[in-house]
């Protein structure tokens, strides 16, 4: 399990992108805000809560091809599955990798970003908690959709059409500051669903 995780993390961080790229992406998505809507403090605070979710969704969604596709196309997925007979181990390793590479940078730079957008300290903790619990669930969802669509053509728009309706509950509750328990519950539900569906998808394609 650890060896697999180490390999996944190593590949993700050193071959395709790094913490630096992902955090720059988040900063740039948020920098658009004042250009689009002006520099009114109160308005920016309100918009910040929404745009940060768009940034997170895009970061997770646009990179979802990297979860299984690269390994599937060069045949490594077969080797990994033969080596680690429990599919659950592989899936959990993929969750951790995807979350660390494409979500964790957001949480590292979130203090600076909320400083830039005049967010008060109390609100900051609530936003942080919401994003944290929401991001888990979104990674679970993206993983099982990616496992299901391994053999599909024209993939990224197809995947977006499948994923965005599944993201809607997270986005609805995510912008409300008091609803982190609901986000946690949603994430747990999507974990259970994701484990079953990802294993089902992987088994179909690898056979």
């Amino acid at each position: 399990m650890l060896a697999l995780l180490k390999r996944d993390l190593y590949l993700a961080l050193y071959s395709s992108s790094s913490f630096f790229y992902t955090s720059s992406f988040f900063v740039l998505v948020l920098i658009i805000l004042p250009f689009l809507f002006g520099t009114n403090n109160v308005q920016l605070q309100v918009l910040f809560k929404g745009i940060i979710w768009i940034g997170l969704s895009l970061s997770i969604l646009l990179t979802m091809e990297r979860i299984f596709n690269a390994d599937y196309e060069d045949g490594n997925l077969d080797i990994i599955i033969q080596r680690y007979p429990s599919l659950e181990t592989i899936i959990i390793s993929k969750y951790i990798t995807h979350w660390v590479v494409y979500c964790l940078p957001l949480f590292i730079i979130l203090p600076i970003l909320s400083f830039l957008f005049y967010v008060s300290l109390d609100n900051f903790f609530l936003i942080f908690l919401n994003l944290l619990f929401g991001s888990f669930g979104m990674v679970f969802i993206v993983t099982f959709v990616s496992a299901l669509t391994l053999g599909a053509k024209r993939t990224i728009f197809l995947k977006a059409i499948i994923v965005i309706p599944l993201f809607v509950p997270f986005l609805i509750f995510g912008t409300n500051l008091e609803s982190w328990p609901i986000l946690l519950a949603l994430s747990m539900m999507s974990f259970v669903l994701s484990m079953y569906v990802s294993a089902y998808g992987l088994r179909l394609y690898v056979e």
Binding site: L148, T149, G151, A152, K153, R154, T155, L158, I161, I162, V197, Y200, G201, L204, Y205
Partner: peptide
């Protein structure tokens, strides 16, 4: 769309049932 984009129709029916 998922059904249409998978060329192996046997596989496609298994995948889209899950979706």
């Amino acid at each position: 769309f998922l059904w249409q984009s998978i060329t192996n129709k046997d596989l496609a029916s298994k995948i889209s049932a899950a979706l």
